[in-house]
Design a protein around this nucleic acid. Structure first.
Lengths: 111, 111
DNA sequence: TTGACATGCAAGCTTGTTATTGCATATAAA
DNA sequence: TTTATATGCAATAACAAGCTTGCATGTCAA
């Protein structure tokens, strides 16, 4: 049976591939591109790109709107914000504390 | 031949596994734990945990110090900060702009 | 209504990842 | 110096990921 993946896993796995990160950059540069637009910048078949976009969609990083026979892709940065809060800000506090402890130690050693 | 991975790739791939994220949380809760300490919280063999820690080390997220026959593990949050700057702050600006555009549109529609 | 275009769906190949088992080595403790 | 502890290294098996090829479908334009 296929393993059930939670949202965090979908998100980090989506980001763990250079082609997908490139797609995010492409959409950041110009939102609302069609599949064909995006394909022109990646060195793989259209079907490969489709699969990557599917992963980004499943992770909630990309939203799709159909216009006739064209599929327009839009970036959704909200999940990135969630990563920040859960996985960066939390660990950042520790880093800042370490710096401040170091500072205190240095000041103390100057006594 | 094995594909050469850049730093960003090592970092995101390191984060793309729930066991490794759990290890980061464990070290965040209590830094400097030995391999055996960490093993007690994961449902896999010691060797499995060793391999995960190797991935975290390669990504620069964990640093190791030997004390006799014990291996102590320390968290390094600096690479997370780099992710923030390159992959979150950048996209966050777009999100804030979208919100501000929405606000302007709403204000306009109230005229 | 025909042909070109934009895309979907699915099978299959190749490679990478995760975890295991088995054995080896170095350090500490009895 | 023997035994237990903490760990490393390597081969392998099971599974997942990435990409391709081939064909199908819906939409637009002449």
């Amino acid at each position: 049976m296929p393993e059930r993946l939670d949202d965090t896993d979908l998100l980090f796995k989506a980001l763990a591939d250079p082609s997908r990160r490139k797609l995010l950059d492409l959409l950041h540069a110009h939102d609302g591109q069609t599949l064909n637009d995006l394909c022109e910048h990646l060195d793989m078949t259209r079907q490969g790109v489709t699969q990557h976009l599917g992963v980004l969609e499943a992770a909630g990083l990309v939203t799709v709107v159909w216009r006739g026979r064209e599929k327009l892709h839009f970036l959704n940065p909200v999940p990135l914000q969630e990563i920040y809060e859960r996985w960066i800000a939390k660990f950042e506090k520790r880093r800042l504390k370490a710096l401040s402890d170091l500072k205190k130690r240095l000041e103390k050693s100057n006594d």
